[in-house]
Design a protein around this nucleic acid. Structure first.
Ligand code: MN
Ligand code: MN
Ligand code: ZN
Ligand code: ZN
Lengths: 122, 122
DNA sequence: ATTTTAATGCAACTTAGTTGCAATAAACCT
DNA sequence: AGGTTTATTGCAACTAAGTTGCATTAAAAT
């Protein structure tokens, strides 16, 4: 599915800001915050950015992650994979996918491990 | 180790607010936010509460968890166990401990699963 | 008991994210 | 294509969680 299809398939209008936002998120290796986004593209207003994240999260185009810095990080929803948040440097990294751990009765949509990353352990 | 010992062992002064905060957190079944805390005990100022959480988190007396509501939830650090955050009702529940999943090179301190809880799945 | 210094409470502040609203521009319909 | 409808945008104002400066209070050390 192309980025444009992700937008239109869900009944959203195909606008320049939405295409720009998705195209930038598509080339990130890790989730990014609005602060980081706006450095890469200062043309999009923060209300537009956050509203887009909300709309797209509701239809699972976007996956949001809370950092312990009080900021929200966003990534394009690809294959479901766990994330690691370092409590020392607060970096968020995508981890390789794993078979989801069975948790009777719960629908698991994401797993976050918190701890200290290899770099910070040195 | 008693609650008082947790405070003094780490070089903190044994004050009334700290004892009160720990005693209230000790009887919770789940992590609570400042909003929830202040309903149970309106006598502690929010700056004192948050400063206490910061100090105590730094020495692992307290474990903080980010909710997707933009609030922080706190619990007394007992045995390390995973948490489940429901993305529908935003409840945070403590799950029974499990052997930690090996993640080469990372020090894992907590695991958070996100998804939909049994109640919301009905 | 006196001194020292950490911790508290208050008010002011910071900052991530939200909201109201007028202007704009997709999508829809002749 | 031209005209109408309605979702979306950008701006500014706002909200709310958490932080900070500072004078006061009270542990703990002597
Ligand atoms: Mn990822
Ligand atoms: Mn817990
Ligand atoms: Zn790190
Ligand atoms: Zn739920």
């Amino acid at each position: 599915m192309t980025l444009n299809e992700k937008i239109t398939r869900n009944g959203f209008r195909l606008t320049a800001p939405r295409k720009k936002i998705l195209s930038i998120l598509a080339i990130q290796q890790q989730p990014i915050s609005f602060d980081e986004y706006t450095l890469l593209d200062p043309t999009i207003d923060k209300s537009t950015f956050y509203r887009t994240m909300q709309s797209f999260e509701s239809v699972r185009i976007i996956n949001g992650i809370e950092s312990d810095t009080g900021k929200r990080y966003f990534e394009l929803t690809e294959t479901i994979h766990p994330h690691f948040i370092c409590q020392h440097c607060h970096s968020i990294v995508c981890l390789p996918s794993q078979p989801p751990i069975a948790l009777q009765g719960y629908s698991i949509e994401s797993v976050i491990y918190k701890g200290v990353c290899p770099q910070c352990l040195k």
